[in-house]
Design a protein around this nucleic acid. Structure first.
Lengths: 212, 212, 212, 212
DNA sequence: CATGAATGAGGATTCATTCAT
DNA sequence: AATGAATGAATCCTCATTCAT
């Protein structure tokens, strides 16, 4: 069952309990199917209190997204040492990412699925986070080129597409790893590095695949 | 709005109109937020007729999924010539895929997002289609290795992970291409081929990226 | 399944098929829960035909009541020889009644339960039949008194009450006999004769039970 | 109309108001024809409150049955002194029964007609009550035989049939008394005692009516 | 004689949200 | 700081009934 029902907690604590309950409910049942009743009950408070603190279902959902996006970003940031070489940074970041999504499937579902399918307001909040990550990956690609003393001769759009593909592949692998028993975060990260980094290396060495 | 209201059509025609309206509504608002009223109105018929022909919201949604999955599969199949070399097949398949998803964004949303988030019944129907595609890509990877007279020395699980990553990257790129003005299906396909095929080539030549 | 679907029947036959289906459906599901769809399907015809012949659900129900009331009345009448002594007439009538209700449970349900609970129009149609029967029983009670050369010294109201009680007991026993395996029409009739006729005899012999 | 609309009542009170309204509506229009809208309006509350407290139409109906069955049973029990002779007990019980059914026609309709025609769940709940009553009457018949120092020489099945007939007659008379102006509970009880008890006496004295 | 196509009206149920305490 | 009591507005779904052929 949900949080133990304790009376008279400070507002900040109660709010976190509510967000916990909301993330879990939104993640498991989806935004529309999640009812404020369910969330209040799981949080161990009455519905009016939820409204008093979080205002509305929309605001509550937005607060969930903000909290979860922050936590995921922070987890990845904490896993990466910006002094190390680019490939090491990517490897560390991916492991942190897969570890976090495996440990917080509801939060990940809220960010990856729910937030993107219920209106611009939410989608754009996640898009901002995603753009941060894509920008980080883009930096890494450029840095890798520099480290290799190569001019990748890639346009901005092309690099953006590659970063996008890499991030998209990571997101898909996260769902796959969560759904496939026995696949660890480390294995998912290794698969993606093999798939992606080697391909990038080829590109930078001037051996792109060219359409027929 | 929607289909022009014409009276007394044969059942088969009306059913297609209803599915058109349903795919559009489900794709744009999501399964839960789509109301049968909206769908009936968009189809230009009364609600009872929708129920008479399609039984229930669930059945209607399932019918949408089946129709869209069939159409997407067929589009990809029609774009590929199984006699050509593996890389050419992948290239053609990807172009067909990106073209189709660009032209049918609502259908793609139904398959990619909605169907996966509203119950096993729907998820499994899409999963079957996806497995077909992953299997096709897996074949191509193996075929590519054979064509290159290389033993890629990859376990089954590794190939599956790679195929999964490739398909996942394609799915993400489809969303990105749809959302980014000026990105064509051809460009999306080229980006992914560059990203993926070159990486696969490295792998087959025994130069995998290895974790530190 | 319902009546075998044969095309192009004369109107009278089709009407009987519809009434058969309607009695069965009304008897088993009740007036409100029975749908015109069900009835039409069971009758093997299209709904518009039902409306063409029987006009409306109300009219159809009324037609059922009329037919079933006539059949029940006729069955009882055919079982009784008005020349015989009163107790013999009652005995024969009861056997005919219990036999008929056992063989036509749906028709009996329509008359006994459905007709009485869905508006004056139907209730009064059954009430007329019932009054016929109560009048018949009243006659028998009076005749029995005359046969016994007794003046029962019973007011009209009292005789009416007794007849009502007898008919009511018969109706209840019909339901009980239908629901209790192993109870035949003959046994039900015997139980009621024992219960009722002997009591009536006492009354006529001037030995009523008197309240304390 | 209905209960006076007063705001903010404790739950227990509101529930009783809802049950009052529901019994009246179910009794007068039948289970199927009664709409939750009607009931809520008659109770002076909004529909969601009815659902909040009573869950569903089925549960509401079941709650009505339970309440009414309990009240009727209690009324009869309170009217009977188990220390008195059997005939006196039956007389008192019948008067209590006819009085109660006359004063609560809707409740009686719910128990006698509605509950028996809308599914096992409800039927069995009334059947239990009825079996209690039939058992009580059966006891009285046996006790009467013992008081008369007679061996009625009746099998179990025959006694059961007699009790059933008596209870059935009482049920029918209740409907008749309610529908016939000027018939009091006392008169209905007297009619039935005359009809039934004298007949039972004959049986016990070894003078049954025998089929020809 | 017979039906495929179609709908207006309503019924059960749920939900986000507020008020009075 | 917290809640029991209450509702307006949808939503899914069904049904009796009709029209055009």
């Amino acid at each position: 069952m949900g949080t133990v029902k304790t009376k008279r907690m400070p507002r900040a604590v109660r709010e976190q309990q509510m967000l916990d309950a909301a993330v879990r409910t939104f993640g498991q049942h989806g935004y529309m199917a999640a009812s404020m009743d369910d969330i209040a009950e799981l949080a161990g408070v009455s519905k009016p209190l939820v409204y008093l603190y979080l205002n509305s279902k929309e605001d509550l959902f937005a607060a969930c997204i903000r909290r979860e996006a922050g936590a995921l970003t922070e987890a990845v940031r904490a896993g990466v040492d910006r002094e190390l070489p680019a490939d090491r940074q990517l490897w560390d970041g991916l492991r942190a990412f897969f570890t976090y999504t495996a440990e917080h499937p509801d939060g990940w579902s809220v960010l990856h699925i729910q937030a993107r399918t219920h209106g611009e307001r939410f989608a754009s909040e996640v898009a901002a986070m995603r753009e941060d990550i894509v920008a980080f990956v883009t930096q890494l690609i450029v840095a890798a080129a520099r480290e290799a003393h190569r001019d990748p001769d890639l346009g901005e759009g092309e690099v953006a597409g590659l970063a996008e593909a890499l991030v998209g592949a990571a997101e898909s692998l996260a769902a796959w790893a969560n759904a496939t028993p026995g696949v660890t975060a480390r294995q998912a990260a290794a698969t993606l590095m093999n798939f992606a980094w080697a391909g990038l290396a080829n590109l930078m060495e001037g051996r792109p695949w060219s359409p027929p």
